[in-house]
């Protein structure tokens, strides 16, 4: 605040006039932000109200934490938290490991042309919508799909497996879909980081007799460690956000015990059942956990002297 005042004093009238156009645009951007990004935060009040659409936020009765108590006494919500966390963590680990592995291995490809082609192909799934990806998954995993065909051909199973009818397959399918879609895309940033490693380090390692494996272990991996950590921090905050589209599109009555996530719960109770207060409470819980996760990761990174977000 004080700094702001000083800034004001240092700016001449001429300069202020010159910046007029910037100030006018700033007013527009603040107004836009207040309406579309900050106004919904006022809606958080609904979680503490018995919100009635006809009364609005101003006139609905406040009921304290009742809705939160309802949430946490609901066995479905507890299960939904478990599903969201489990799938978030599994996806995070799977996509991280695969992207790093892919980046390192692609970097070892010596034929320059093929490397470029592989990388171009690897981006493709990222540009497809989840609608298309789940459609493809349905085809591939159906009774007559390619996966069952291969499994029966190699006599690994006698009967085709109905993958979408068994709870135990749901999380692995979601993880695989995420890996399939995002490996090439996520690898971009690691490949850039690998490129930035000082080549002399590899030369030194070679002189010390390091083989390919040791070079990866002692030069490449430590070289991209800061990138890995900052991306990990950014993504851990998103763990609870990672579950909506695919679960919504792939889930069905048979697997809903393991497929429903917080967002689907909000959609179901908030929008379909019109219990806006309960839906908002669930949403607040999700936001709060995300922010706490980001802060924790950031603090840990700071303590260990690593790269961090803020």
């Amino acid at each position: 605040m004080e700094q702001k005042k000083r800034l004001f004093k240092n700016i001449s009238l001429v300069e202020f006039k010159r910046q007029r156009v910037l100030i006018i645009w700033s007013v527009f951007f603040v107004a836009y932000g207040l309406v579309f990004c900050y106004a919904p935060l006022v809606g958080w009040l609904m979680a503490f109200q018995n919100y009635k659409p006809k009364d609005g936020i101003l006139h609905s009765a406040f009921i304290g934490m009742t809705k939160f108590k309802m949430l946490f006494s609901d066995a479905t919500f507890i299960r939904v938290i478990r599903n969201t966390l489990a799938m978030g963590v599994i996806n995070l680990v799977a996509t991280f490991v695969m992207a790093i592995l892919f980046a390192i291995l692609l970097n070892e490809i010596r034929l320059k042309g093929s490397k470029k082609v592989i990388q171009t192909i690897s981006y493709l799934p990222h540009f497809l919508s989840w609608i298309i990806v789940t459609g493809i998954l349905h085809d591939a995993l159906s009774g007559s799909g390619i996966v069952n065909e291969l499994l029966t051909k190699f006599h690994l199973v006698s009967q085709p497996i109905n993958f979408f009818a068994h709870e135990e397959y749901f999380w692995p399918i979601v993880a695989f879909a995420n890996v399939w879609k995002e490996t090439g895309w996520n690898a971009i940033i690691y490949l850039a980081a690998i490129t930035a490693i000082d080549p002399s380090l590899y030369e030194a390692a070679a002189i010390d007799g390091a083989g390919r494996w040791n070079k990866i272990k002692y030069v490449t991996l430590p070289g991209i460690k800061p990138t890995i950590i900052i991306l990990l921090i950014m993504n851990i905050g998103n763990v609870l956000n990672a579950g909506f589209e695919i679960q919504y599109l792939l889930g069905n009555g048979l697997v809903q015990q393991v497929s429903q996530t917080i967002d689907i719960y909000v959609l179901k109770w908030g929008i379909s059942q019109m219990d806006y207060s309960l839906g908002t409470a669930a949403g607040i819980f999700k936001s709060a956990v995300s922010i706490v996760l980001i802060l924790i990761c950031n603090t840990i990174a700071k303590r260990h002297g690593e790269e961090r977000l803020f």
Binding site: G33, Y38, L41, G43, M46, I271
Partner: peptide
Amino acid sequence: KNFIFAKQLSLFWVITMYVNGGMIPIFLL
């Protein structure tokens, strides 16, 4: 660099990356 509100406006928007109202309030808005 010499715009008087550059920092504040920047922060105003960066905050929106981390906090959002969630599905229901946005829907009602």
